[in-house]
Design a protein around this nucleic acid. Structure first.
Lengths: 341, 341
DNA sequence: CTGAAAGCGCTTACAG
DNA sequence: CTGAAAGCGCTTACAG
């Protein structure tokens, strides 16, 4: 709006301050070996201020071979659970002076050319890759191996830097809650991929510890619609579970709906507990009992680890165990004795 | 993994193909004025393939003063409604060879330095700014004025390129639905900002047309918690509405919970209809009647308009009226006669 | 039909 | 304590 005044270049700052461009650059970058007369420095700072000078990002990127860009490769931008993770990670990145580029995990792993343009074209300094779903596999290894990366939700893998939540412990907490209420017919409502597998393990561990036999898992999926269909089929086929541990709260909303549409009540006939607290869980009817995991913390942690990777790449696996999974007991779980049906 | 082989440069491709770097560049960029011998072109293409050459993004960006980056300034990355918008917009951008940088609208409009680094530093080619909330105002104008921008959800504003959905029509459809069911005590559950204001207008239009008097609006907010608190307060104070038009479905989930916790039933005592279809609405108990707006279409449209802005900036306002708002009638609305309380 | 050269805006050894 | 110069990897008039 201010006329057609273009943005200032470094050389114009130098001219205005009557110094060389190199000196301005060194002052801007706080070169520790530099000793300037305070008077000169003040003149340069004034000139920067006067011209509203801001370094040209592409020029810097070319010169430093660093873009200041972190790629986030997600399966769905709109996953209600990971939204919290993404938002925190974005903020953490901004604090560290990085910007975040939104990428499609599917496209990245599937399409050779998209991957090439991104990695070989030096578009980003590093990649935060969301894993743990069925659609992973093949490409992931290659992508993560050719640029500094952190793989979120993957099992420990040689050569990859992974980070994840304590899924096994979370599922155990959920399962123990149902056991303590007196349930003995407890089914796991699962999905595909490593993350679900880890949660199954936690469910089995807790049952084993209590000496209660597992019953066949119900196959759900990572979204409400798939989980609902799975549950409706299960009860239509005469399923006898009184307690359900659901792999994630998005699916639990579908389970919730499916139990009700099967003519059963929550928690009267069936108790439902799921993993992850999210904005909607407390507003359901009845409100959903969940096990909360530190999604915000791990968003920040993943970004920190990624920035470390950029400085010096290394393998390794981190499991965020603190704060521990926390049960938020709400209306969707109760003793099986209260069953009204 | 493939040893320490660095990515190839243009000059290496040229050397391998025994031509000049300029020629390789012209072939890569499909220079229309260029006539090469097919044989030479084939040699160059082979060399590109052999070296897996990909242009260096920063070098191109510096040379062309175009980053290929679009900034998306959102209020909340995790808004369940706009997630759909963001996902489609990201895909549309990728199809047009642009990448998307995730930005915080609050930070952008609030913090002077963040804005400067971004715009004056030539970090992005253009900005898609989410507006329509109470926290807008001041900074927005300045930001949108200094870089090619599209402002989503804003009212028509001189000098800004705006795009939005037909909020007024959507609210009218929702309100007419309740009128047709026979409701006469219909309240709007609103929030702050221009988007809510437009929906209020649609609600008032529909009532006016039917000759039904509006009743005082209920102040809710853009999230479930705030809306729930507003509703609980309303009914605790003896509110008499039998029909509620809720500004957005995220809030409607809170309204849903609030009506129930006030001891009323849906739709027996109170009918609830809201704006926007989202993943969770059909799984509520009872499922939520909503008016669907083309969120995916407008994500794509906004990106198209933004890319147009980059080519040649211009003001203007676009309202996406097609496909028209569509009522999805579900269990949360019924005739007031069915009231059981 | 193809090449040589300048330059996008920075940074950083190297001089002095 | 400060400056001159080269170079990051491209693209594009300008020659020939």
């Amino acid at each position: 709006m201010q006329g057609s005044r273009k943005t200032a270049r470094l050389s114009e700052v130098a001219k205005l301050a009557e110094v060389s461009p190199g000196l301005v650059s060194r002052i801007l970058n706080e070169d520790p070996t530099l000793k300037v007369r305070p008077e000169t420095r003040a003149r340069v700072l004034d000139a920067i201020d006067m011209l509203q000078y801001t370094p040209h990002a592409s020029a810097r990127a070319l010169r430093n071979s660093q873009t200041g860009l972190l790629g986030f490769a997600l399966h769905h931008v709109n996953d209600p659970i990971y939204a919290q993770f993404v938002e925190t990670a974005q903020i953490a990145a901004a604090e560290r002076k990085y910007s975040v580029v939104l990428l499609n995990a599917g496209e990245l792993v599937g399409r050779q050319d998209a991957f090439r343009a991104l990695v070989r074209g030096h578009r980003v300094d590093g990649l935060l890759i969301q894993s743990g779903f069925s659609t992973d596999g093949n490409g992931l290894q290659e992508v993560a191996g050719s640029v500094p990366s952190v793989v979120f939700n993957a099992d420990q893998t040689p050569g990859l830097r992974t980070v994840r939540l304590d899924d096994t412990a979370a599922a155990s907490v959920a399962t123990r809650h149902l056991l303590e209420l007196g349930h003995t017919q407890i089914a796991f409502v699962g999905a595909e991929g490593a993350t679900s597998d880890r949660r199954v393990r936690g469910y089995l561990d807790a049952l084993d510890e209590a000496g209660v036999a597992p019953i066949p898992a119900i196959s759900g999926g990572w979204d409400a619609g798939a989980a609902r269909a799975g549950i409706e089929k299960y009860f239509a086929a005469g399923g006898k579970a009184t307690g359900l541990v659901v792999v994630t709260s998005t699916s639990a909303l579908g389970v919730h709906a499916g139990v009700i549409s099967a003519g059963l009540s929550i928690p009267g006939d069936v108790s439902v507990v799921s993993i992850h607290n999210a904005w909607f869980t407390e507003h359901l009817n009845p409100p959903l009992t969940v096990v909360e995991l530190p999604l915000a913390d791990i968003g920040r942690l993943a970004v920190d680890l990624l920035i470390d990777q950029i400085a010096s790449p290394a393998g390794g696996a981190t499991v965020l165990e603190e704060p521990a999974p926390r049960l938020l007991e709400r209306g969707s779980t109760a003793a099986p004795g209260e069953r009204s049906g």
